[in-house]
């Protein structure tokens, strides 16, 4: 059983890292988690992002967070990527699979996957 003692061990291990983590995080990934996003499948997308960011060792650089309705419900699940000094990237109609790809190619590799982004002509 995952005991509180194990949680204590995690705490002891993470304590130093937490201090390190603050001040970094220059990339922010936001998932729309309002009724529209949740109904369209945002929960597995969010979980895939959290999982892959950790797997790729990007925890210090990338923050994954949740927000309400972004306003383009027909394109949910929507994932936005904010990076200092760059224009916001909006990925639409996301799936857990596409999310993994975004972590690998965009968050890690620095290349925006334009075929998944919102196009002006869609609006």
């Amino acid at each position: 059983m995952k005991s509180l003692a194990e949680l204590q061990a995690i705490k002891d291990k993470m304590k130093d890292k937490v201090i390190l983590r603050e001040g970094t995080g220059d990339m922010r990934v936001v998932v729309g988690m309002a009724t529209c996003g949740i109904a369209a499948g945002a929960r597995p997308v969010l979980n895939a992002l959290v999982e892959e960011v950790n797997k790729e060792g990007l925890n210090g650089k990338v923050t994954v967070s949740q927000t309400g309705c972004i306003g383009i419900c027909q394109f949910e699940p929507v994932v936005e990527v904010f990076e200092a000094g760059k224009e916001k990237v909006t990925y639409v109609k996301m799936t857990a699979e596409k999310a993994k790809e975004v972590v690998e190619k965009h968050l890690k590799g620095g290349r925006v996957i334009t075929e998944y982004t919102l196009k002006d002509e869609n609006l």
């Binding site: 949680l7 705490k11 937490v18 959290v50």
Partner: peptide, 11 residues
């Protein structure tokens, strides 16, 4: 148990 370690820590 966690004190100042945030609950959203991956582990």
């Amino acid at each position: 148990v966690l004190e100042d370690v945030p609950l959203d820590t991956y582990e």
